[in-house]
């Protein structure tokens, strides 16, 4: 599925300083029943965001109007657990284009890259800087520069570079996905398949 191209994103950020945020929290299983990719943002962090009677939990960060923006900043080991891409869809559909953490679970990271959400892994120290900057000023802006592979806290100028492989970077900046690439080499794949032992 094609998605918006990602180049330089400058935005305030929403802080979620909790470790091991698993995909069951990002989107609980009972919301995985759709057959189309629609409306997942409404159920992002459903059980942290709403009481069982669907009234908002005031203290949860997504219900706090002070915090807005296209960047979600999470604690270490973000996105562990289930392979559900719905978790990445929910993040995207809610309006985030970038998730920052000091560590990501593998499948979640992959899923994000496949649908146009940029996972930015920073050092634990830099993550602390970001949390403190947002605490000091909820409107503080971060700049995520994909071509240069840097993330900067604009108020302080503190900056760090992040990793992404060239192939994925290219995809993200152009809004391509892997299927486009694979379909182009279909004949190679077929030849390969013919030589498999089973």
């Amino acid at each position: 599925m094609a998605y918006d191209k990602f180049n330089i994103l400058t935005s305030s950020a929403v802080p979620l300083p909790i470790e091991n945020v698993d995909t069951d929290q990002i989107i609980p299983a009972r919301f995985l029943k759709a057959t189309e990719r629609k409306g997942f943002g409404d159920n992002l962090f459903r059980d942290w965001r709403y009481h069982q009677d669907n009234t908002p939990k005031e203290q949860f960060v997504l219900n706090n109007p002070m915090y807005t923006g296209k960047i979600l900043v999470g604690g270490k080991n973000f996105g562990s657990g289930s392979s559900r891409e719905h978790a990445a869809w929910a993040v995207y559909d809610y309006g985030f284009r970038c998730v920052v953490s000091s560590f990501f679970a593998d499948i979640f990271r992959n899923n994000c890259l496949n649908i146009g959400v940029l996972p930015v892994q920073v050092s634990p120290e830099f993550l602390e800087h970001i949390f403190r900057a947002i605490e000091a000023d909820p409107k503080t802006k971060l700049e995520v520069n994909l071509p240069k592979q840097t993330i900067t806290i604009l108020a302080t100028g503190a900056s760090e570079s992040f990793d992404i492989n060239d192939y994925k970077k290219d995809n993200m900046t152009n809004g391509f996905d892997d299927i486009d690439y694979l379909l182009n080499i279909k004949e190679d794949i077929k030849t390969f398949a013919e030589n498999r032992p089973f």
Binding site: M1, E85, I107, N110, D177, D178, I179, L183
Partner: peptide
């Protein structure tokens, strides 16, 4: 290993996925 839905689509379409070697 487990994959996401975009990758399910890739495998259906091309029997391949794109993964860095762990």
């Amino acid at each position: 290993f487990g994959i996401g839905t975009s990758e399910v689509e890739m495998v259906l379409a091309t029997q391949c996925i794109m993964q860095p070697k762990p």
